[in-house]
Simulated scan of single mutants.
Amino acid sequence: MRKKHRIIAIIIVALVSLSMIGSTFVLFFTNSSSGASASGSGNNANSQVQGLQSQIDSLNQGLKSNPQDTNLRLSLANAYYDMGMLQLDSSQEQAAASLKQAVAAYQEVAKTNKDNVNVLVDLATAAFYSGDNTLAETTFKQALTLKPDFFNALLNYGYFLMNAKGDYIGAIAEFNKALNTNPSPTDADRVKSLISMAQARLSGGQDSKQPISSQGNK
């Protein structure tokens, strides 16, 4: 995978946002209290989106000449995924469109890489954030069948269960499985934060869930 920890990074940013402004489902980029800083952040995101669009255009051109090139198609899927995540904070419609393109590209890659759990988890997560919860759940389960102790899959599936399904008990179970994979101390702390969040909701505590501006990855 081009970005081994893409999904984890997205959830990390989501957690930061959650702790600061109470968003769960998901505000990926925290807004600064400074108007100038917020504007600068927006300009930076726009610049990144433009760069990704240029990358996407080049990859699509390459695939016209080499439609069977799996590496090119995986790079295309990753670029659409990254662009969709960047767009979540500004346009849910554009983000969903980009993430659906990512899903389609990951599905093509998965046809010849059925046992690649990284691809499957990215596919599942992109499906989740594009609004296709059925595909997301099916693909998360497929990845975990192949590799039951895959930290990324456990973390993201738990996050999916908590936010898309409202299944806090199931989410806590997946998060505990993730802890049992002996992650780094930093990752373990983040999982524990998610467990605390799920437990608070389960006990009827204040729900910090906020719909994505209408989703976030990884």
Score class of each variant (00 low, 15 high):
residue 1 M to G: 12
residue 1 M to I: 09
residue 7 I to L: 12
residue 8 I to N: 07
residue 8 I to W: 04
residue 9 A to N: 15
residue 15 L to F: 06
residue 15 L to R: 02
residue 15 L to G: 04
residue 22 G to W: 09
residue 23 S to H: 15
residue 26 V to K: 08
residue 32 S to H: 03
residue 33 S to T: 13
residue 36 A to E: 15
residue 37 S to W: 15
residue 38 A to Q: 10
residue 38 A to R: 13
residue 40 G to F: 13
residue 41 S to W: 11
residue 42 G to Y: 08
residue 43 N to E: 15
residue 44 N to C: 14
residue 45 A to H: 03
residue 45 A to F: 08
residue 47 S to L: 10
residue 51 G to C: 04
residue 51 G to F: 02
residue 53 Q to P: 01
residue 54 S to N: 15
residue 56 I to L: 10
residue 57 D to G: 10
residue 63 L to T: 02
residue 64 K to W: 05
residue 64 K to A: 13
residue 65 S to P: 08
residue 67 P to L: 07
residue 68 Q to H: 11
residue 71 N to Y: 12
residue 71 N to P: 09
residue 73 R to T: 02
residue 75 S to Y: 06
residue 76 L to Y: 09
residue 80 Y to A: 06
residue 84 G to Q: 03
residue 85 M to T: 10
residue 85 M to P: 04
residue 86 L to H: 06
residue 87 Q to P: 00
residue 90 S to K: 09
residue 91 S to V: 08
residue 95 A to S: 12
residue 95 A to M: 13
residue 97 A to P: 07
residue 97 A to E: 09
residue 101 Q to P: 02
residue 104 A to R: 12
residue 104 A to C: 10
residue 105 A to N: 13
residue 105 A to H: 09
residue 105 A to G: 09
residue 110 A to C: 11
residue 112 T to P: 14
residue 114 K to T: 11
residue 115 D to G: 14
residue 117 V to L: 04
residue 129 Y to T: 15
residue 130 S to R: 02
residue 133 N to L: 14
residue 133 N to Y: 12
residue 135 L to Y: 04
residue 136 A to S: 14
residue 137 E to W: 01
residue 138 T to L: 14
residue 140 F to G: 07
residue 142 Q to H: 08
residue 143 A to F: 05
residue 144 L to P: 02
residue 145 T to H: 05
residue 148 P to D: 09
residue 148 P to Q: 12
residue 148 P to K: 09
residue 149 D to Y: 08
residue 150 F to E: 04
residue 151 F to A: 04
residue 152 N to P: 10
residue 154 L to T: 00
residue 154 L to W: 00
residue 158 G to S: 09
residue 158 G to M: 04
residue 158 G to C: 04
residue 159 Y to I: 15
residue 159 Y to W: 14
residue 161 L to H: 01
residue 163 N to H: 03
residue 167 D to V: 00
residue 167 D to C: 03
residue 168 Y to G: 01
residue 169 I to Q: 10
residue 170 G to D: 00
residue 170 G to L: 00
residue 171 A to R: 00
residue 172 I to Y: 03
residue 173 A to R: 05
residue 178 A to Y: 01
residue 179 L to N: 00
residue 182 N to E: 13
residue 182 N to A: 11
residue 183 P to F: 02
residue 192 K to L: 08
residue 192 K to Y: 10
residue 195 I to C: 01
residue 197 M to N: 04
residue 197 M to C: 00
residue 199 Q to P: 05
residue 203 S to V: 08
residue 205 G to H: 01
residue 205 G to M: 00
residue 206 Q to V: 15
residue 206 Q to P: 13
residue 206 Q to D: 07
residue 206 Q to A: 12
residue 209 K to G: 07
residue 210 Q to P: 03
residue 213 S to K: 14
residue 214 S to T: 12
residue 215 Q to E: 14
residue 215 Q to Y: 14
residue 216 G to R: 09
residue 217 N to R: 05
residue 218 K to V: 12
